[in-house]
Design a protein around this nucleic acid. Structure first.
Length: 112
DNA sequence: TCTGTGACCGCGG
DNA sequence: ACCGCGGCCACAG
């Protein structure tokens, strides 16, 4: 039995909830940070959701690219490698952009 | 403690 | 349609 490190922080039960919700987002659709947080049980914690995505490992299997800003644009720095990867992945799934923005139909599917 | 910062959000102007 | 601002949660210095 390893002695637990004192620096270990207690696991946040909401982490799992957010990952579960994210894993449920179907290809070809997107979700906003705010919606993601709310569905994970933390309404109003959009920034918190963004922080968790930021912390994801580069080789994660989760569909991180399906999370976009409420404005319909990508939140990653425009022109960055990450932003380009995100857009490429989304378009490969059939997500259509109108300029920098994603069509409303792609992120208005939750209200069903 | 207080302050700044960020893969955010909504309301006004 | 584009900003500016205040509000939001968590962490770093």
């Amino acid at each position: 039995m390893q002695t637990p490190q004192l620096t270990d922080k207690p696991p946040d039960p909401f982490y799992t909830a957010l990952y579960t919700v994210l894993a449920r987002v179907p290809a070809g659709r997107v979700i906003t940070y705010g919606q993601l947080a709310a569905l994970a049980g933390r309404p109003g914690a959009a920034r918190w959701a963004g922080r968790l995505l930021r912390a994801l490992p580069n080789d994660t299997q989760l569909p991180w690219h399906r999370v976009v800003a409420a404005s319909g644009k990508l939140s990653l720095p425009a022109g960055s490698d990450a932003a380009n990867r995100q857009r490429t992945r989304l378009e490969a799934e059939g997500v259509v952009f109108r300029g920098e923005r994603i069509r409303l139909a792609h992120y208005r599917w939750l209200a069903e």
